[in-house]
Nucleic acid binder design. Structure first.
Ligand code: ZN
Ligand code: ZN
Ligand code: ZN
Ligand code: ZN
Lengths: 170, 170
DNA sequence: GGCAATATGTTACCGCATAACGCCAGCGTC
DNA sequence: GACGCTGGCGTTATGCGGTAACATATTGCC
């Protein structure tokens, strides 16, 4: 699968990072929120809010209404430690949660076959070019994430390891 | 609004273009499909399948089940005369439907305030750069449309002409 | 304690999308 | 004409993503 699954140690470090991020923005990292974030960190890749609720239940033996999940995810997104993939309606922990540097723009490479997502940040040049062209076309772009769809090398070379989380393209 | 509303003449020309596109791909442009496409062409901008069904009813005094709308839209998308905006779940007629040249990659500029969408095709250089970088990061991108969100000049300068069709950002 | 703000729970609902099944018209074949 | 095939379309039911509105609990602060 997507290889994003965190070890216990990484989860701990990420939680500390989230703690910092929340504190600096006056957001509270309650126990429930911490547990939810843990479930998200342990997930193998981006998952839906409903799936996350199921994971939470499995992980902590406690029901968590979807409504609450969405609210908490919003908090995490505000804190910058969670990303929402608009094109697939899925949420994923920021890969920079443990390290302390927040990032501005983000680009996501999404494999429509196996669902793996890679968070990259080395296309700023193209982003600003696009921004420029949009500007001259009468638009002001958000400094926003780009979601690029395709297939990863593994799936491209015929392995086609499909997962239920993978979304069909188009 | 988005200024994409077609005149009667443009609708006719677009239908002819669609006719050509369908014929070359062995797809049939039935009367019902033609009526649906007309409703889409007359729409002021990208609309949802459900809204399109309502427009169809208003335009032609006949019920059209959403299921059928989706099926027809799929046909049009295959024929290359309709685009689906993944980030907003909306459909729009290709602005090149009347002219005869199909286009490969497309980029959409989407105003999250008023809903206007501009179909542009002058960012191929950036697209291929992104493709290249993705490649070196283990991904094969589709030659796919890019959906860029922001606000148009009008909305940016404070007019903020909100429409029910506009989607909140994020 | 008393109060305000924030966090969480409950219910009910809406919008997007598709699966599964059935019907029917058109068409070619025997 | 009977048969069977194909594609277009209708019907029903359902699943998933997301949120409004309102109720309750918890926390922080004076
Ligand atoms: Zn990130
Ligand atoms: Zn893959
Ligand atoms: Zn187009
Ligand atoms: Zn606008």
């Amino acid at each position: 699968m997507s290889g994003l699954k965190r070890s216990g140690k990484m989860v701990r470090q990420s939680l500390e990072g989230a703690e910092r991020a929340c504190r600096t923005q006056g957001l509270r990292l309650t126990d429930k929120r911490k547990r939810l974030l843990t479930s998200l960190l342990k997930a193998a890749g981006p998952i839906s809010a409903y799936d996350l609720a199921h994971h939470y239940r499995a992980d902590h033996g406690e029901e968590l209404p979807v409504m609450t999940v969405y609210r908490m995810l919003d908090v995490f997104i505000d804190a910058g430690v969670v990303h929402k993939l608009r094109s697939t309606n899925r949420f994923m922990a920021c890969r920079h949660m443990a390290c302390d540097h927040p990032h501005a723009a983000t680009q996501f490479l999404i494999c429509d076959s196996c669902g793996i997502v890679r968070e990259m940040d080395f296309a700023d040049a193209e982003i600003s070019k696009l921004n420029q062209k949009a500007r001259s076309s009468g638009f002001h772009l958000y400094q926003e994430q780009l979601e690029l769809h395709g297939v990863c090398d593994r799936c491209h070379s015929g392995i086609e390891e499909k997962t239920p989380d993978a979304r069909a393209h188009g």
